[in-house]
């Protein structure tokens, strides 16, 4: 299918600034969906609030544009109530990890089959360039005229610690790598996180003198390196890209289906439910 067949052209032109990285990420995402041959009726895109969140309006899937930070909570309701749907949740860095931080770690902890895409441009763009939990210290923003003193999250480490079973990072510059990673993330059964470094020349780039969009893309190329590459070995200050975690782990909706199966069986038999915990294990816990 042509990429334009995945887009609601009625709503174009899109509202992103010239040079924004989000359009490139949208392109990669749609190519990933196309290459996987997914049915548009089987995809729900849920987003929160911010520049990144507007992505959901432009795609011809079921789309749910929600509240700031809450996209994963809405997505959890959609997914658990209809597990056959594919959930794609693009979020900005502030959306996903400031106001939405709690929902993010809990969705990861449950390992519910949702693909979270963190479009990280290290700034609040829509409100005009305030620092985010991913800006890091020493950066300028409209709410940090004397530079930031806040440390940033490492999205990859945070996601791994929270229990995501697929964790990857790429950039808007590395389009082909992005498509490949997104395809794997979407196919992965469980909570998958893809952090994609994006550029905001309008706010972050201007405030921090990182140049125009092309220079910022160049920066993404020069400051990152593939996992296991010679470049990364030689210069550990580079930001690693690639797939950090890809493991099989019990998926939330599948586990809940087992609960349903057991509960239905128990209620039909009119017998009490089998104990969840082996009594011997319980006893040893008590003695300790």
């Amino acid at each position: 299918m042509a990429i334009k067949d995945y887009i609601r052209q009625r709503y174009f032109p899109q509202m992103w600034c010239p040079g924004c990285g989000h359009g490139i990420i949208l392109n990669s995402l749609l190519r990933a969906v196309d290459e996987l041959g997914l049915d548009k009726n089987g995809i729900v895109m849920t987003s929160g609030i911010g520049c990144s969140a507007r992505i959901s309006g432009y795609v011809d899937f079921h789309s749910l544009h929600t509240l700031h930070g809450r996209a994963l909570a809405f997505a959890t309701g959609v997914k658990l109530s209809k597990p056959e749907l594919k959930l794609l949740v693009p979020m900005g860095d502030g959306d996903a990890l400031a106001i939405g931080g709690n929902h993010f770690i809990h969705a990861a902890r449950r390992n519910i089959d949702i693909t979270a895409i963190v479009m990280n441009n290290r700034i609040y763009g829509m409100t005009g360039g305030q620092y985010s939990p991913l800006s890091g210290p020493g950066k300028k923003a409209t709410t940090a005229p004397y530079t930031t003193i806040d440390n940033e999250f490492d999205v990859v480490n945070l996601s791994i610690a929270a229990g995501a079973s697929f964790v990857a990072r790429s950039t808007a510059y590395h389009v082909l790598e992005c498509i490949d990673i997104l395809k794997k993330a979407i196919q992965h059964k469980g909570f998958s996180v893809v952090e994609i470094l994006s550029q905001c020349p309008t706010h972050y780039g201007r405030k921090n003198k990182e140049g125009d969009a092309a220079q910022m893309l160049e920066f993404q190329k020069n400051t990152t390196a593939k996992l296991g590459s010679k470049a990364l070995e030689n210069d550990p200050t580079l930001i690693p890209r690639g797939i950090f975690v890809d493991i099989d782990a019990p998926e939330y909706c599948e586990e809940y289906d087992k609960i349903v199966h057991r509960a239905m069986k128990a209620s039909q038999n009119g017998k009490p439910e089998e104990p969840l915990v082996n009594p011997l294990i319980q006893q040893s816990c008590v003695t300790q």
Partner: peptide, 25 residues
């Protein structure tokens, strides 16, 4: 779950409210 429905304990009341809206859709 006895009737094939779904129950989830969310991380807070905000998320609970969001989740039921998603499930209603």
């Amino acid at each position: 779950p006895e009737k094939g429905g779904k129950f989830i304990q969310m991380e807070d009341e905000i998320a609970s409210m969001c989740a039921i809206i998603g499930a209603s859709l």
